[in-house]
Design a protein around this nucleic acid. Structure first.
Length: 809
DNA sequence: ATCTGTGGCTGTCTGA
DNA sequence: TCAGACAGCCAC
């Protein structure tokens, strides 16, 4: 057995099924005994327990494996009982939580994961059943589509509205799925998979969707992957398939009304054809999105690296880390603690994190700003300080670092240097593999299959280690140690501070104006000096710094990343900049500016806010394609014209709902039912006067929609608009109720203008932008004696003088 | 099969 | 007018 495509626990819980594709593509399955194992340290189990286990029918046996004792149990319950008595006696157990599939994969670390034959799947269900009911109780499946990666597809249509016909339909569906191993569906985890599963059970075709197929939610994958690369907030407003199809492929909305699926099916003929066409188009959209993004391919690579099967579960960082390290541990002959339920909530467990230095306030347009950053900061720290849950050793917090250990400066936590920890070892493995694959790619002719393959592995080996720090900071992770996680982030903060001071000392004119975690932003220094500084830091400064901590290794590395020709800071994590060069490549005329944090990037602002801000950014930096007179320009008349035009537009001209709606996600259940088991609910706290505090607007609207029978719950996105901003609480309405009237005064004065006002006040602090504020509500803009609003009390921080004199314009 | 982290900004709602 | 609780989203 060298490669498998899937494995699952068989119905009897006593076996697991290994699924394989042979060279001809035929599916082969093997049944092997399911192993419910617990490891102990040899010698830690009392002799009378071992004698008892020999006669215990729930014990399948035990054997010594080096310094470990491996015990095997007859099923979940038998194992759970042994874990609990061991826990009571204070005897450490290892890997006692692993299900038999995870156990088998860990026991066979050389078995690789085959690429599954992928089918994109979509179903249409009876629209007379509301979406909520459909998800919870099921709804009649009317049609299905199964599409292969080559675009060939099969379609099934319900013959008549009876259970017997649905049974036939489902049988045909599974028949169509037989050539495939993986079922990919958009929002499948919440819709298609549970519904297909329920109907399968009700029609007595099985207990649910057979485990033979890997279930993969394409939408969840897309959301995770696209979060970091989305250019503007437009892409984040909706993850509905047609919205993503539009964003990625420019495909327009289809004219089929998805709320009328039953009528279309019932009418038959052309109506039914339209329904089927619509479904096939949707299925094909997923194929198009994958062709454009390659996210499924990357996920497949990550799964292969970790030893996981590519389903929705394999997206979780803890699952990836756990699977990879269990296999690495098996190769090294080590085993890891049994994972138990985390007891405390996350908030109670928060530890100190990254370092942020505030940027200068209202400093105008900055010029020639250079940025250096640490390459893979947290992984490099974990390797250099040998940080792992099991390498932590007792040692002095202050004073000289004893031999055989290294110490983190801010937390005083010591780690042994006598042997490499399992996490640093894994990280070094990824680094080496990435380097190897990157070199292979460079040696392949571009565009060849070999080059693409090397590219795929390069990306996979880059992605996997990135989540290790976060995963081990999670209380539910097998490798979690709070002090270790904090030591990683605090050592990062320390390195950034040390770098800041070193630069200041070595280059008196240089000023570090902003720091966020692993990036340092500076002015008053030339490109040549920075490159020299980076060399000096890497070759001399960090080696000494780390040696003083007792580190035996040092892979901490700073890199010169980019220079901004122009830069405007609004606040920490909020800025707009025009590149001069980025990673060695010079910017060209019309290069897109870098935009971070501000309204333009956010999915929870109105489209008007984003479009307006895009036009102003185009004046400031160019490259947005949003203004007739793209900048960079400092001609204030151009800005005033644009602001005035937008102000008039919003106060007076017709506005569509798409332009004015705010979209926010719900993170909790909106109901008031105390018996509801849906997890967390929104707080119903009382004010100090004993009055019930109103919920936020999107929660109130969520309740309205739920009362109308819509499927509203955690994860739902709520679109609403403000109809009366003066009322308390605000008058808000569901976006679907819009009839063309909204509170324009509020829209301009509270929603659209402020984010861009802050941008303009940051770029042109001397200019007074208040005349563009919304008209006063009571008396409209005639009362000249009205006192002007007071300016912020805090004096703006002064920018340090730059020797070149290019800092201020 | 509960399960990446912390830091930071902006908005609403409330009462002082 | 402002601070503090709560909430969502974004930068690392």
């Amino acid at each position: 057995m060298s490669a498998i495509v899937n494995a699952y626990i068989d119905g009897d819980d006593e076996h697991i099924v290994l699924v394989q594709r042979d060279e001809a593509g035929a599916r082969i399955t093997h049944r092997v005994l399911a192993d419910y194992a617990i490891y102990f340290r040899n010698g830690e189990v009392p002799g009378d327990w071992l004698r008892k286990w020999r006669r215990d029918p729930s014990c399948r046996g035990y054997r010594a494996e080096g310094e470990w004792l491996r015990t095997r149990w007859r099923g979940w319950n038998a194992r759970r009982f042994i874990l609990s008595i061991a826990h009571e006696e204070g005897i450490e157990t290892f890997e006692g939580d692993c299900n038999p599939v995870k156990r088998w994969m860990a026991d066979h670390p050389d078995v690789t994961i085959q690429a599954p034959r992928r089918a994109y799947v979509d179903i249409e269900t009876d629209s007379r059943v509301g979406p909520k009911q459909a998800r919870e109780e099921g709804a009649r499946i009317l049609t299905w589509c199964v599409m292969g990666e080559d675009g060939s597809y099969e379609v099934g249509v319900l013959e008549e509205d009876t259970d017997a016909a649905e049974r036939v339909l489902l049988r045909a569906f599974y028949q169509a799925m037989m050539p495939y191993d993986q079922m990919v569906a958009w929002n499948g985890d919440e819709f298609d998979f549970p519904i297909i599963g329920k109907r399968t059970k009700e029609r007595r075709l099985g207990g649910g969707i057979p485990r033979l197929w890997l279930k993969m939610d394409h939408m969840v994958l897309y959301e995770r992957m696209n979060l970091q690369v989305a250019e503007s907030g437009d892409e984040k407003q909706s993850y509905a398939l047609n919205a993503v199809g539009h964003a990625q492929l420019g495909i327009g909305k289809q004219d089929f009304d998805a709320r009328k699926t039953f009528q279309a099916w019932d009418a038959g003929g052309d109506s039914l054809d339209a329904l089927v066409d619509y479904m096939v188009m949707d299925t094909n959209l997923m194929r198009g999105i994958e062709a454009k993004t390659g996210y499924l391919k990357l996920h497949q690579t990550v799964a292969e690296i970790c030893g996981l099967f590519p389903d929705s579960w394999a997206l979780l960082p803890t699952a990836q880390m756990d699977a990879f390290l269990l296999r690495l541990g098996r190769r090294r002959g080590v085993h890891f603690p049994t994972t138990t339920r985390a007891e405390k909530t996350y908030d109670e467990n928060k530890y100190r994190g990254s370092y942020n230095k505030d940027p200068p306030e209202r400093a105008g347009i900055l010029r020639n700003v250079h940025v250096v950053d640490f390459s893979s900061m947290y992984p490099s720290i974990m390797v250099s300080w040998n940080m792992s849950y099991e390498t932590k050793v007792p040692g002095p917090v202050n004073g000289p670092v004893p031999a055989g250990m290294c110490r983190t400066p801010k937390t005083g936590v010591c780690f042994t240097t006598s042997h490499t920890g399992i996490i640093p070892e894994a990280l070094e493995f990824f680094l080496a593999k990435r380097k190897e694959m990157s070199a292979r790619r460079a040696n392949c002719a571009p565009g060849t299959p070999e080059a693409h393959d090397a590219e795929r592995w390069t990306n996979g080996y880059k992605v996997v280690p990135n989540s290790f720090y976060g995963a081990q900071g999670n209380a539910g992770c097998r490798f979690h140690r709070r002090e270790v996680a904090e030591s990683v982030s605090q050592t990062g903060a320390w390195l950034a501070e040390k770098t800041e001071w070193a630069l200041r000392e070595r280059y008196p004119g240089c000023s570090v104006i902003y720091v966020d975690t692993d990036g340092l932003w500076m002015v008053g220094i030339t490109r040549d000096d920075i490159e020299e500084a980076v060399r000096w830091l890497n070759e001399s400064f960090y080696p000494k710094l780390l040696a003083d901590c007792g580190c035996k290794k040092n892979i901490v590395k700073l890199a010169y990343e980019k220079e901004f020709e122009l830069l405007v800071f609004i606040k920490a994590k909020n800025y707009v900049g025009k590149f001069r060069h980025y990673k060695g490549k010079a910017a060209v005329a019309g290069s897109k500016p870098e935009i971070k944090g501000i309204a333009y990037k956010r999915g929870d602002h109105t489209q008007l806010t984003r479009d307006f801000q895009a036009e102003i950014i185009d004046l400031l930096m160019g490259g947005m394609g949003a203004s007739k007179t793209p900048g960079p320009t400092e001609d204030l008349a151009l800005y005033e014209e644009a602001v005035g035009r937008w102000r008039t537009r919003i106060l007076e001209e017709p506005l569509s709902i798409e332009q004015i709606q705010t979209v926010k996600g719900l993170s909790k259940c909106v109901c008031f039912d105390e018996k509801c088991r849906a997890g967390e609910h929104y707080s119903t706290r009382k004010s100090t006067k004993g009055k019930t505090v109103e919920s936020p607007p999107h929660v109130r609207i969520g309740r309205v929609l739920k009362a109308r029978g819509e499927d509203i719950g955690p994860g739902s996105r709520i679109a609403y608009y403000v109809s009366d901003g003066a009322r308390k609480p605000q008058g808000v309405e569901p976006a679907c109720d819009y009839t063309g009237k909204c509170d324009r005064n509020h829209l301009w004065g509270e929603v659209v203008w402020p984010p861009t006002q802050r941008l303009l006040e940051s770029a042109f602090p001397q200019h007074d932008w208040r005349p563009f504020n919304a008209p006063k509500r009571e008396k409209v803009a005639v009362d000249r004696t009205e006192p002007l609003p007071t300016l912020p009390k805090k004096p703006p921080r002064r920018m340090p003088e730059s020797p070149s004199g290019t800092l201020f314009h």
